[in-house]
């Protein structure tokens, strides 16, 4: 049982505020992904949980035990590093067994667990090799096996797939998900790749400028972004934003069309819609087609709506010409609204 609680954690490097007021609870056996652009503090947070970095303020609890004063080795965690950190002077076998040897496990136990995890990661034929004789993907497997062999309560991964080529990354991603689901460990996974985050996570914590902006399931983060930043960060292409003017109570005018919007907001709000939640219709947002990119299954159409760039993912059998003006109707239940001053979602 290893629930992780992060309470009021802050980190300053001199004047620079790397993390501020982080509160996060990760359930036992949950797969949590920390997602954000580089420099958002996600790796720092991971290193604080790991114990490689100390928080300036706040507490870290793992499995009901306060750990922020403990050394990494006493926290019941294992870590997979971005550059693998496979020890070059040891064979794959000794790399995987390194932690077990440090725990002074008997030889046959080390052998049993090394062989089991090696089999799990499909590297049993590499046990006698050195890291210099391995490819990047194989090193990655060794690094994961080394972490799993510890049978940790929590496994921490810092962009573990980012050094692999695209095809291998897809393969490893699926494999990691399966292996970790079986191992019953709590996992925290840092990445800047939203597709990776979406496909792996039970929950995603989107981080921005040292804060957790939203922590929710992938679908929730995608459908109901809590902040304008999340809406613009998640999704490829990201959400479209259009300025809105108040027409009446709960009614807003967007590019000449009126839509039902938030009641309470008296300030200005923005209209937001995902590119795939739009369909051509008799009446809708007037859009001038600028660019048509056929993507096979869909057309990615870049248009000009009310002087703002607007993207739509449309059916590929549509016949469109650049310069043409079409009407695009958003699905009413997929429209989101963001307060322009607080950047928060408003309903």
């Amino acid at each position: 049982m290893a629930e992780i609680q992060i309470k009021n954690v802050a980190k300053r490097f001199g004047e620079y505020q790397a993390l501020s007021d982080i509160n996060l609870t990760i359930a036992d056996q949950e797969f949590m992904v920390l997602l954000g652009a580089s420099g958002c503090g996600k790796s720092t947070l991971l290193r604080i949980i790991c114990g490689l970095e100390t928080a300036t303020e706040g507490e870290v609890w793992i499995g009901g035990r306060r750990v922020d004063h403990l050394a990494p080795k006493d926290r019941g965690i294992a870590m997979v590093f971005q550059n693998y950190a496979v020890f070059p002077h040891l064979t794959v076998f000794e790399n995987i067994g390194f932690g077990l040897r440090m725990q002074k496990q008997p030889n046959d136990e080390v052998k049993r667990r090394v062989e089991r995890t090696a089999e799990l990661m499909h590297i049993e034929q590499l046990l006698g090799r050195y890291s210099g004789e391995l490819s990047g993907g194989q090193r990655q497997r060794v690094a994961v096996a080394r972490a799993l062999a510890m049978e940790p309560d929590v496994i921490l991964m810092d962009e573990p797939l980012s050094n692999l080529d695209a095809l291998l990354r897809l393969e490893m991603r699926a494999e990691l998900k399966g292996v970790l689901a079986e191992s019953n460990t709590t996992a925290i996974y840092v990445t800047h790749d939203q597709v990776e985050a979406m496909s792996l996570a039970d929950r995603i914590s989107v981080m921005h400028q040292g804060r957790i902006v939203q922590a929710a399931t992938p679908v929730e983060v995608y459908r109901n972004p809590a902040e304008r930043f999340v809406a613009g960060f998640i999704g490829n292409p990201p959400m479209n934003f259009l300025p809105a003017n108040r027409a009446d109570a709960g009614k807003w005018t967007v590019a000449g069309q009126t839509y039902d919007g938030p009641h309470a907001a008296d300030g200005s709000v923005e209209f937001a819609i995902r590119p795939e939640d739009i369909a051509p219709a008799e009446s809708g947002l007037p859009a001038k087609v600028r660019l048509i990119e056929p993507l096979g299954a869909h057309l990615l159409v870049t248009c000009d709506v009310d002087g703002t760039m607007f993207r739509a993912v449309l059916e590929s059998d549509l016949e469109l010409k650049t310069g043409e003006i079409i009407n695009l109707a958003p699905h009413a239940d997929r429209i989101r609204w963001f307060d322009k001053s607080t950047q928060q979602a408003v309903a």
Partner: peptide
């Protein structure tokens, strides 16, 4: 020697001294 090698050793049950002995020194 990448610091990550030492850090990996720390997470695998070493303190600064044993990590030095087991990882840095041989390298």
């Amino acid at each position: 020697i990448p610091i990550e090698l030492e850090e990996a050793a720390w997470t695998l049950g070493c303190n600064r001294v044993t990590a030095f002995q087991k990882v840095v020194l041989p390298l």
